[in-house]
Design a protein around this nucleic acid. Structure first.
Lengths: 191, 191
DNA sequence: AACGATACGGAGCCGTGTTCCGTTTAGCAA
DNA sequence: TTGCTAAACGGAACACGGCTCCGTATCGTT
């Protein structure tokens, strides 16, 4: 799992600079901000940004790697700290939703069909689906929820519900996600 | 509610031609297809398409107007035909979901934040939210669901869940929507 | 037939993603 | 220190899609 650091010092410095600039621009203008803006903010040329991060997805991944990782690690912790696996699942999903809705436009770019972002989609999924699976399985084993949904589907569904959650105060993604999770419980559903 | 038909015969003919071409291209390449492609398919110039449909949203609305209208009209019918308002709601949502997932990329473009498509978003909402409100209110009155969600939110949530439902066989939007609707029922939810 | 109003076509502009290559520079060795 | 080379840089240039603008063609009327 070595970090493939570039050899030259200036390259390493630029990578850090770019990461910081990207983070700042993402906050200010959303993850869809023009690549040129990020390069400008970092004070580097177009070539440099593409050399370090061949696709926008790579850049986004690099910027949010730590937070995604933290979210993944919170899963087992929540499972251990809560009586009910269903509650743990709900809390974990809350974490994920909070992460998404506070990153302007990130949820919208997570869609797999969005050309050029397959790797971003894939990264999120491979980081979080295993955790989700664990929580889901625990809740199923505890008899709290129906075994109907697959983890992948749940993650995508939650991600989708978060799209546009910023930029429209009338749309409360958290509430809908809560309802979706509630819908997983055993008693419900008939027709 | 008169149809503002253009005066000249060729203009009227072109409008029809464009509508047909757009419908064909939307099926073949999705609603995101380049405007040039649609113009080419119709055998007209760029100017013509923009004169008739100033924004892409206008074109999409025109193409799907009838189906959206049919969906809106199905609401009251379902309410009359079903014992349980909750069932009627579920069936109506099914109709809406079927519509969305069969239109390559349409759901993705419905997001309000998507620049230039506010009017499309607004059109769908103004057509369907009243119907949704009626169904929701009936189900609430029947004591079948919690009054927690607003119609607008439900519509947007369902729309969001449909994003990317085509283009990925592992993601079944219908199932998630069913679960979301199940989550509306009274018994569920606690923490 | 002639003429004005209406509509048409598509070249061209702009903004953005992405590539390519001439120039600069870090790091090392003499 | 100086010189050299590979690594890294910068930004001009290209691709592509949305959208506009205006000279030209067409309709319909007199």
């Amino acid at each position: 799992m070595g970090e493939h650091k570039p050899k030259r010092a200036d390259a390493r410095r630029n990578e850090k600079t770019l990461l910081d600039a990207a983070a700042a621009v993402f906050v200010a203008s959303g993850v869809d901000a023009p690549v040129r803006d990020i390069a400008a903010k970092a004070g580097v040329g177009m070539g440099t940004i593409y050399r370090h991060f061949p696709t926008r997805a790579d850049l986004i991944i690099a910027v949010y790697r730590h937070q995604v990782c933290a979210c993944a690690e919170a899963g087992p912790a929540l499972l251990a700290a809560n009586e009910s696996p269903h509650t743990a699942l709900a809390r974990w999903i809350d974490l994920f939703v909070d992460f998404l809705v506070t990153k302007h436009g990130l949820a919208g770019v997570l869609q797999s069909d969005n050309a050029g972002f397959e790797s971003l989609h894939a990264y999120f999924l491979e980081q979080l689906v295993p955790v989700c699976t664990e929580l889901l399985d625990a809740a199923i084993a505890a008899g709290e929820i129906r075994a109907e949904v697959r983890p992948l589907e749940l993650m995508r569904g939650v991600g989708n519900l978060c799209i546009g959650a910023d930029s429209d105060p009338r749309y409360d993604a958290r509430r809908l996600v809560r309802i979706l999770i509630a819908g997983l419980r055993c008693e419900t559903m008939d027709a």
